[in-house]
Amino acid sequence: MKPQQLKKLLVYLSKDYTIFGPEKVGDRLLIREIKDAKKFKLVNKKPFYSHKEFLIPSSQTLFNYDKNKLLKPRIKRKQVLIGIPVYDLKAFTLLHEVFEKDVYFQEIIRNIILIGHSPVPEETTFYEDYEEHILEHLRFDIFLEFKPKGEFRVFTGSEDGQRILEKVGIKDYEHVEYAGAVPEEGLAITEKIKQKLVKSSKNTKIWKELNKRCIVCGKCVISCPTCFCFNIDDEPAFEKNQGSRIRDWGVCFYEEFSEVAGGEKFLKTIGDRIYNWYDHKFVRIPNEYTLPGCVGCGRCIEVCPANIDLRKTFRDLKKLLKSKKL
């Protein structure tokens, strides 16, 4: 597919959909509304944040209430998300599994067209296993593989994707049938090793050291494309007996995350909470969904003001294992 055809595709989509894609803002690549599809150029870089906000909004109204009536808002926004590197697609495929029975997520995803693209090797990104066959385990509508001279090899992953390309007259695409999120061979061996490392490290000094360094800013959680913890709270309106029940992103690093009425907290130290974050990504998610909870985008490393680096944590864990302290 030639670059002009991508423009044609976006111009076509912009008639029915609002398009969100990466745009350079200062020195950051941020996801913004693409108002002029003709001017959009898909750059070969990772957006600073993922498109997570569009799938699980940081603040989502579950209900508007009036006296005792709960009214669920209808979600009808038709959106195209473009500029999703393959690891973010992987994260969204996981979110699909996690929120399989969540009516809000399902309503949003039904009206979204996902346009993914191949990853770009970057310093912090440790996602290495990009191969064609992984596409069958990812949820997407259209997938663009970067080729020289601004050209793309095009894949479709859904009927919507096929229909759209046909409408625009793009014929040189290959269709990939979605074969479920989990590959036949199950969890990759590299993930199984990480699971074992984290699981057996609960009482090691690694978490105590991170306890000293982490400043509990929560940036890693916000920037992580797979972090999905949430809180649910009511926000009263000015009118009496009216308001909304809101689901907000939760940050498991915050002290009050495990606090119950009366003040008791169960994840007491920062170290406890960091361990819980690793345990969720590398132990619990693989157990529950047979998928990795970390897709290797490297954003948590880039945003951390305390220079905490997940790759170093794993190097340290491996060292502990070798020295038989694990």
Binding site: V98, K101, C229, F230, N231, F266, N287
Partner: peptide, 19 residues
């Protein structure tokens, strides 16, 4: 056991303990 909970179905993560 008592823990903080929001969803009730094992998604929101607040009540996790030992996996």
């Amino acid at each position: 056991l008592e823990r903080r909970m929001y969803c009730g179905v094992g998604t929101c993560q607040h009540c996790v303990v030992g996996g």
